[in-house]
Amino acid sequence: MYQGIRIAGFGGQGVVSAGILLAQAGVEDKKNASWLPSYGPEMRGGTANCSVVVTDGEVYTPIVSAPDSVIVMNEPSLPKFEPLIKKGGLLILNSSLINSRPTRQDIDVVCVPCNDIAKELGMDRIANLVALGAFIKKTGAVSLQSVANAMKKVYKRAKPEMLELNQKALQAGFDFVK
């Protein structure tokens, strides 16, 4: 198993932290993992994205130029990342905020209303975890339990009720994909 993933969205949508969570979950699963953010001035507002690799073997380059999977959380990220996806790869699309639809026919597209689901749970900010849940269901790259374990390490200062809410968002995304 070798999964190269790109996660993209607005700064503040939690795409960078979702990536760390995914990489940490890979480590919890005794896999090798890497995470690389877009860093520098790019971070100051505008779009953010990160590359994640989770694999049973060794991580080649941490720069995922041809991702197996892409999660896009906002409209501008779709045209930027859709073309990069490997043939037969996966695109998770946040349909709450993205009106356009991908044009490629050779990829697997899953539209998830991440923000709507998150709002139903009571917090818009956890839309990233809804998307992550959907990704996990589709790929099996890491286990749900590993992400739960990873949350405790990545969100060290989070209150128990917040962790519980995060867990619900993850589960909701997971359950959304049939």
């Binding site: 760390i20 990489a23 890979g26 480590v27 896999k31 090798n32 993992a33 890497s34 995470w35 690389l36 953010p37 860093y39 991580v59 941490p62 720069i63």
Partner: peptide, 10 residues
């Protein structure tokens, strides 16, 4: 280099 410094890895 910058990428090695900025990336996270197991």
């Amino acid at each position: 280099d910058g990428i090695l410094g900025q990336m996270m890895e197991s």
